[in-house]
Design a binder for these strands. Structure first.
Lengths: 226, 226
DNA sequence: ATGGTGTTTATAACACTGTTATATCCCTAT
DNA sequence: ATAGGGATATAACAGTGTTATAAACACCAT
């Protein structure tokens, strides 16, 4: 490691400190939410000054922007970890469940992701730089959205879901329902964990059933035989 | 008014200032979101000192808690303004649309309502005082929730929606979908206003269709004849 | 009407926050 | 080895919510 770090010591140290800041910030995020991230406390925890945040991220906004991107990456990783069921409808169901699991296991990250429901951290608006930036419109280009989109697309190609609505509308419909369900559950709107899970299954099942083509419904009924 | 104010001048002035603070705060909320509410600016705007907020609301938390309650009251008013269609299914559809209209017309208030998806302003947690407080569990006692709940209940009683899931699950399913759709739309996830509206109708229609009983589906098909 | 009492108010201080200016240091490239 | 440039630490600035203190006020009993 010593020789390797000699190649470009400065860049390595920069990256190391950048990740150290990100790690500490994410820990503070998980502990007390986005407001609990204080640049001063963060700096002292990492053993540097607040200026490090400005050189590495351009300020607090850039820092939480980086956390925001990491949240989407983690969600994408959770979705990618889902074994691709050959039955596209079941794969879609598994993806929805993976989304929920992510939200429940990473409530702070999830809250950060959806906290952009209006304030929109400013730095996340259509970056005119060509750089991929997971913001409002940009999210639809991110893997986390693309994975579910492709799964819906497959269902349309197989004739399970209709094509006249457009794939985007179908994907958004499922996304909206899943997101709404997770919001409710994280806010504490449930009598028990089992009740929340049941509600999730009933709702996602209903929205899929309501969108299905006649052929899709036949297939669903045959699957429910098991 | 002069004689009337003589009866209890102090209380009247208190209430007047309380509402003045609330009005100014709501204006600041609409302009720049919850973070744009500064107690100092609020006080100077109303023509008093920051202490007024502490005597009237117990602090900033109490102030936004009051705004939070007002947001739910406004939503309830918007729902109550919906003419009660004798066909419960159509009434439910109109309620959902009224919810969306409220969210689009009052984005700041709506953002405040759903901003409690996790941070939960602390003061809004299950107030052990018997006082009705629209928080997590408490919201289900609020009119804004009750109106939609009763509409769903009516559908169950009419045999349009099944009873084996329980009314709460059905109501939550619709609520979650509508909320998710509004979140997406307010975050800017739509190509045009018409596209967003279409997506809203498709999704809410699908989730209702997916939940319907066989009798309910017949009724829906007959309604779609028009 | 007047004096006492308790609440509401304004002022100022406190402990924070993010940001920025400045000056030092370290590292790299010549 | 040395001049130059970017990163850093220190400190100051402009804010924030909250709190202590003391004056003003309204009310009630005498």
């Amino acid at each position: 490691m010593s020789t390797q770090s000699d190649v470009s010591t400065a860049d390595a140290r920069r990256n190391a400190q950048r990740e150290a800041l990100l790690d500490a910030a994410s820990e503070m995020l998980v502990h007390g939410g986005p407001d609990a991230i204080s640049l001063r406390k963060l700096a002292t925890r990492v053993g540097t000054s607040t200026m490090a945040v400005y050189t590495a991220f351009g300020g607090k906004e850039g820092l939480i922007s980086a956390l925001y991107e990491e949240a989407f990456d983690r969600l994408a990783a959770a979705e990618e970890a889902v074994t691709k069921n050959p039955e596209p409808l079941l794969y879609l169901r598994d993806l929805a469940f993976a989304y929920r699991s992510f939200a429940l296991k990473n409530p702070s990250y999830y809250a950060l992701m959806i906290s952009s429901t209006l304030p929109v951290p400013d730095s996340l608006r259509h970056s005119d730089t060509g750089e991929a930036n997971p913001t409002a419109r940009g999210v639809t280009q991110h893997r986390s959205y693309r994975i579910m989109f492709d799964a819906v697309k497959k269902c349309v190609e197989d004739g399970i879901l209709p094509s006249h609505h457009g794939v985007e509308v179908l994907a958004d419909a499922l996304w909206a329902a899943v997101h709404g369900l997770c919001s409710l559950e994280l806010a504490g709107f449930h009598d028990s964990a089992e009740a929340a899970e049941n509600r999730f299954n009933v709702t996602t099942g209903a929205i899929l059933r309501g969108l299905l083509t006649p052929e899709g419904r036949k297939k669903l009924d045959s699957l429910n035989q098991d």
